[in-house]
Amino acid sequence: MNWIFPDNINTDLITPGRYNQTTDPKELAKICFIEYRPEFAKQVKPGDFVVAGRNFGCGSSRETAVTSLKHTGIEAIVAKSFARIFYRNCMNQGLLLVIGDTDGITPEDELELDIDRQKLVVKTQGREIDVLLPRMMLKLRDEGGIVEYLKRHGLGALEELAKL
């Protein structure tokens, strides 16, 4: 299913500071949206999409917000726009962020990403949305994040990333 969120979802709402005191990803996944949307962490299933408006992930640089969302097993976050540090953090952790016009997507819609054509297919509505998926994001997603990438290819491989 799709979890629909409004504009300006900040990282304090994803992992509030007072719960944000562990480095364990499984524990962090349990507190995802703990106050803002308490049913989320309990009901979200691997493969679900998070669908949002503008400026998703704004506010604090805390990377627990990304770790927490990623370890719920969601497929991707689709939003009209993302805050900069959050976007970078997701690239680095290999969580797919998709920029596109999310208006009209419902919780029940069946979504499919067509990465080659840079489209989000809303199967249940029979329409396609143009999306933006930069090469570096796809590469780091496939590699499992920048840490796995550098571990596999050596620290020198950082230079290669800039050439993508």
Binding site: S61, R88, N89, V147, L155, L158, A162
Partner: peptide
Amino acid sequence: IGVGSTDAAVALATGKNW
């Protein structure tokens, strides 16, 4: 420039970042 913790880890290791 502000970043997250993984970027900090890369910077601590390499003295660089993208």
